[in-house]
């Protein structure tokens, strides 16, 4: 499947891109993260500690074990600091 990935805050800075389109068969967000980590050092650095990261699937906050079936957009970012 084709997924649009978007990155925010220091995740975007560590990866060096605001987003990208990927082809993947990963069944879950966590499996997608494993694929990304294996790509290059900058991904491994960005995804080194999942407890420091949050994710959203199709613009809804999700857990890392969330399924990707039918998903179009996955976002990765640090814990939010609004308000």
């Amino acid at each position: 499947m084709t997924l649009d990935l978007v990155y925010f805050a220091w995740v975007r800075e560590r990866i060096g891109a605001a987003g990208e389109r990927v082809e993947t068969q990963a069944p879950t967000v966590a499996a997608l993260v494993e694929e990304l980590r294996a790509r290059e050092e900058r991904y491994a650095a960005a995804f080194a500690d999942l407890s420091a990261l949050r994710c959203a699937v199709d613009q809804e906050l999700a857990d890392f074990d969330a399924p990707l079936d039918g998903a179009r957009e996955v976002a990765f970012f640090p814990p939010m600091t609004g308000g």
Partner: peptide
């Protein structure tokens, strides 16, 4: 504060740093 997707970055004379939750 912690469920709306905003991220704050502070710029000081020492550079820029993301605000940690």
């Amino acid at each position: 504060k912690s469920r709306a997707p905003f991220w704050k970055k502070e710029v000081t004379s020492r550079g820029a740093a993301w605000v940690a939750a």
